[in-house]
Design a protein around this nucleic acid. Sequence first.
DNA 1: TTTCCACCGGAAAATGAGGTCC
DNA 2: GGACCTCATTTTCCGGTGGAAA
Length: 406
Amino acid sequence: MSDDIIDKIFERAIKGPMIFKDKSVLFHDYIPKRLLFREEQISKLAQHLASLIRRQRTSNLFIYGKPGTGKTAVTRYVISRILEKIKGTEYFFYVAYVNCRLAGTEYRVIRSMAEAIGLDLPFTGLSTEEAMGRFIDFVRDKGLPILIVLDEIDALVMRYGDKLLYILTRLNYEDQKILSMIIGISNDLRFKEYLDPRVLSSLSEEEIIFKPYTSIELEQILWDRVSLAFYDGVVSEAAVKLAAAISGSENGDARKALDLIRVAGEIAESECSDRVLEEHVKKAYASIDRERVSEVIRTLPLHSKLILTALYLISLKSPESRIKSSNLYNKYVLITRQFGDEPLSSRRFYGLLTELSLLGVVDKKITNYGRRGGRFSTVKLGIPLNMLEKALSNDPLISDLLLNEI
DNA sequence: TTTCCACCGGAAAATGAGGTCC
DNA sequence: GGACCTCATTTTCCGGTGGAAA
């Protein structure tokens, strides 16, 4: 049976219509040869970087814009173009690009910066101050200018404050042997409230704002990439227009538009269609949402999955009613013991429940019954029951639990 | 206006696993 | 090998919350 399926897939791959010429150009990490509708930002950024080539002190830069407006793409594009030109010349300078959200902690941000310029730091064991000291010493000893790009800088500041930023923004002023420039990139302007006024004024000396793309701009960007990603005539005009319209209505997010057209192509391919049509984009729109939920649930820690299992089993009997969080905790305790593990404390349970609510998997509301009943939260599923069932059944341990309980 | 209920969630500490340094 | 470090996860403690009832 499984052999038949594999045979069919291979046969389709060999004999089916060829749709993609180069799928990689539709992924987020691809740096295109040209970036449409961002000439002004490219020019402003390049002018700033030119100061480092001339070995002149320059102001730091703050880049702000909604997700998918091209902040990271423009920054990486300009840096890669400049590095191409200065590589192996006397104008060379270091570039340390770090995504603060991915790095996670202050220490890992420092370690990533160090790694980018060829300094090896252990992944644990040193204090943050010691790691920072070694990084600064290394830059000073090498005597080359350094460009530090802190992408998603809000993630770092909201969690750890601005200590690291303070040290970095002072480097240029307090150490005559170091020539540095910092670019901070953020989706969220609220993080500025958490900054020391000195850090804020230093970081925001110059700002570049990225406005969301309009649907018309998105359509042109899509055509630009479609011509590289697909064979000629494969993608219909209606499909591109729809993908652009959907993304345009959702914050003008170019990444979303690219995802939609890529997944639409994959769906068309799996259906053995030789063209990507409007209906494939519609299917892609529904599929991306399903995949996101499934991926979120798949990567949850065990006890979050056990909480969801408890909620699933209660929802089976009463799908629409809201459940008191303490009742859900009791059910979670029973299921966890049945699973053969010790349940977490109720405090930890509330923490995990709040996380599930923020992810949109659970719908949590606070209800107040006053003196008679007190104040507590009630929950229900934030996604369809069958979607949760499918996602949980992918975990063999949890799926067994579902079968046993039923 | 005050009291009371039933949590809710912030803060700090504990834990344990990874490590460095001297 | 002992002191000290990061980091993620979890527990413990306890004050805060807000609306119905008194």
